[in-house]
């Protein structure tokens, strides 16, 4: 049963990611990105990362996707034209990407990956919080400064009278 759900999640993720990059209507791409992000959150659940799955839903689906849809609304005349966008160089780009995917597949298959047995933790929140405030406290603080700088920078850039 869990196997079927896993492959369903994988199918939803991959197909909607393909729709994101191939569809010519921008708003359809945004909606397909929603399903991709949900699918990736499902993969996190299968990987026993419940906290990261929750953060993915809150930040990506609740924040970044809404920002992207705001961007689409603000940069197109909704009432006058259909929001479409053409792709360029799809043949050459497709060839490069297929080559890249074959290369990555060879790497994935040939490498003898470390596979240690593990038991499923009851919750990952406490462990992640402990690591954030002990071993990884410097990256945590640096990323908080980055977030503050991005917040101020975005506000300054978006003001009318700069």
């Amino acid at each position: 049963m869990a196997d079927y759900i896993f492959w369903l999640v994988v199918t939803v993720t991959v197909v909607s990611a393909a729709v994101v990059v191939l569809n010519s209507q921008l708003i359809y791409s945004a909606v397909a990105l929603l399903f991709t992000l949900f699918g990736v959150a499902g993969l996190y659940v299968f990987l026993w990362a419940d906290f990261i799955a929750g953060v993915q839903l809150l930040v990506y689906v609740g924040g970044i996707l809404v920002l992207i849809i705001f961007g689409i609304m603000l940069t197109n005349r909704i009432s006058s034209v259909r929001i479409s966008h053409k792709s360029v160089q799809q043949g050459v780009g497709g060839a490069v990407v297929v080559w890249l995917f074959i290369f990555l597949s060879i790497v994935v298959i040939k490498t003898p990956w470390l596979d240690q047995p593990a038991i499923e933790p009851s919750s990952s929140v406490g462990k992640v919080g402990t690591l954030l405030l002990t071993k990884y406290v410097l990256p945590f603080e640096v990323v908080s400064i980055l977030l503050l700088g991005a917040l101020i920078g975005a506000a300054v850039l978006s003001r009318e009278d700069t």
Binding site: W48, A49, F51, I52, V55, Q56, V59, Y60, G63, I64, L67, I68, F70, G71, W113, L114, D115, Q116, P117, A118, I119, E120, P121, S124, K127, V128, L131, L132, K135, Y136, P139, F140, V143, L146, L147, G149, A150, L151, G153, A154, A155, L157, S158
Partner: peptide, 28 residues
């Protein structure tokens, strides 16, 4: 698969935070 240590979770969260900052600045 590396023995369920939580270092990858921390880096995953940092990547999500960085993606949020990047999306905000890029849209501005």
């Amino acid at each position: 698969f590396g023995g369920m240590n939580f270092d990858g979770h921390v880096f995953g969260m940092l990547v999500i935070v960085m993606a949020a900052a990047e999306a905000a600045v890029a849209l501005a």
